[in-house]
Design a protein around this nucleic acid. Structure first.
Lengths: 126, 126
DNA sequence: TATAATAACAGTAATCATTACTGATAGAGA
DNA sequence: TCTCTATCAGTAATGATTACTGTTATTATA
């Protein structure tokens, strides 16, 4: 389902997401956008996040069943603190500046790199 | 809660996981281990997977709300086909052989790299 | 600028993986 | 063997996400 019409709800969602550089969960984003559109429905938020992701305007950061979202669509790496739960950019090219993370990271104990695409078998079927 | 006693349930779980190189979900693993211990409880499986992960004997591969598990505890990267859903090793050092993925990957359209650890702030508090 | 078609909405119910709880069972030290 | 309690089986609860239903609002066309 591509995006076919514009809506103020979707505009508000992407505006909020692009104006911040933390990586809010759906619920955190919901609470923020509700301050602009008080009767925004949670279902609407989820539907639009999926649409925006599919159309490449938003990045989904897998995080268990608590995915986070990022208005910075340059693919980039993240660091999650397992104590406080915050997710930081490992390296960001936002706003013409490169920020590294030496001032953020205490220690790294694990990582997960997952690539997404089509395997050769499924690629052949198309 | 560290592991303090041994149990045949936990043994069966880690045996099954180490004997395969696909990356089963909790439910897939549950169905397999049930063939050895027919009355294994799903709660027991989840509890033990968490314990085994915490003690470093098993690797959790974040995958939405359908995490996958890996008996290969060398940190390594994965590739997920967005069509069939299978998760492959991008590169594996298992069994003294290195397997690359040229025969597996069709195309890569996205990736996610997440590092886990403690941020400087939380590190100071300990 | 009206009208019609339907994308998108608000509100809510359903889904489903995971976690928490309860009473029973079984390792392991005394 | 006895005791303690980690672990278990079974099940209820949780919580994020998705699906459903009737309503609203965007957009193309007359």
């Amino acid at each position: 389902m591509p995006i076919e019409r514009k809506s103020k709800q979707r505009d508000a969602i992407i505006n909020e997401l692009c104006s911040r550089d933390d990586h809010p969960t759906a619920m955190e984003l919901y609470l923020s956008v509700r301050e602009v559109i008080p009767n925004l429905s949670l279902g609407t938020l989820y539907r639009n996040l999926s649409q925006l992701e599919e159309s490449g305007m938003v990045l989904r950061i897998p995080d268990g069943s608590n995915d986070r979202f990022d208005g910075n669509i340059n693919p980039h790496a993240h660091f999650k603190c397992t104590v406080c739960g915050k997710v930081y950019d490992l390296m960001s090219f936002k706003n013409d500046s490169v920020s590294f993370s030496d001032d953020i990271i205490g220690n790294v104990v694990n990582y997960s790199l997952m690539a997404f695409g089509q395997c050769k078998h499924c690629n052949k079927l198309n």
